[in-house]
């Protein structure tokens, strides 16, 4: 029973961060229909930023989100404007390769600057935990989960209640119609990519105290982000949040009951099942 509860709790806490990564990707895909293979690398940039702020300015990773978020918004917006914008109408494989190329540039630039050493942030609470019966609840992961919930709620509010948010949603629904309605589609794309980058970088900052940083850290997260996004339904914020939690739980249950080596198989199999049975994702519209 302890094993089950422990896996459930860690799965949910882990899923919170996954949700944030997925939300970032779903926003980008929703608005631009571009599969962003550099997503994990953008997260990596955010992680190094967190690292620099922690080591050189002594800013706690959870606090530094306030700085990382806007900086990464600019970074993502710039990438969209300079690169992604030019391939919006290109063939999907060209879009993919472009983002792969951008990812290679990011990770290898990071390698030249920081070397390929693992950077580990040790905060006072890095291995802190609260005991609850036979199970333990990680302190830093609980905090990051709460921050995730807050960020997701804020994003949801932004998309529903503000003019810009509604314009982004309109663009995601139908790009051409949005343009006809006088929405500045180009600007919305830049904002969406910037926001997507901020979100995934925030996720990077949140896992920094319990994980580690190295130039290639993004690759694994990119794949995971796709799985989460498709699971929840491409373009759906609530879906991505739900998808993140589901993936977190299936990973940790898979590791406990089938074996850690098989947990990613569980995740990918789940992904394929959803693609086949409900291609629009859990929260997507069924006709997509």
């Amino acid at each position: 029973m302890d094993v089950f509860l422990q896996s459930l709790i860690s799965g949910i806490l882990l899923g919170g961060v996954y949700a944030l990564i997925g939300t970032g990707l779903t926003l980008i895909f929703g608005v631009m229909r571009v599969i962003n293979f550099a997503h994990g690398d953008i997260q990596m940039v955010g992680m190094y930023l967190t690292y620099l702020l922690f080591v050189h300015a002594g800013i706690d990773p959870f606090v530094s989100v306030l700085i990382t978020f806007p900086l990464m918004f600019l970074f993502g917006g710039l990438i969209q404007k300079v690169f992604i914008n030019r391939v919006l109408d290109a063939l999907p494989q060209n879009q993919i390769l472009l983002t792969i190329g951008l990812g290679l540039i990011m990770s290898n630039t990071a390698m030249l600057i920081f070397t390929s050493d693992y950077k580990i942030l040790t905060t006072s609470y890095s291995s802190g935990s609260v005991k609850l019966g036979g199970i333990s609840i990680s302190q830093p992961m609980t905090i990051s989960f709460l921050i995730t919930v807050a960020v997701t709620a804020a994003l949801w509010w932004f998309l529903k209640k503000t003019d810009t948010g509604q314009a982004i949603r309109a663009t995601a629904q139908d790009r051409d119609a949005a343009q006809l309605m006088g929405i500045n589609v180009k600007r919305m794309s830049i904002i969406a990519f910037g926001l997507g980058s901020s979100l995934v970088a925030t996720a990077g900052a949140l896992i920094a105290p319990t994980y580690y940083i190295y130039p290639q850290v993004g690759a694994a997260f990119t794949l995971k982000a796709f799985v989460i996004t498709v699971l929840g339904g491409m373009g759906s914020i609530v879906g991505a949040a739900l998808g993140g939690i589901i993936i977190g739980i299936s990973e940790s249950m898979g590791a406990a009951y089938i074996g850690a080596g098989w947990k990613d198989v569980v995740v990918f199999a789940l992904f394929l099942l959803v693609l086949l049975l409900k291609p629009s994702g859990l929260m997507g519209k069924s006709n997509a």
Partner: peptide, 12 residues
């Protein structure tokens, strides 16, 4: 890194 830059240039 150079490889990545080339890929980006070719695609663009």
């Amino acid at each position: 890194l150079i490889y990545g830059i080339l890929v980006v240039l070719v695609i663009l």
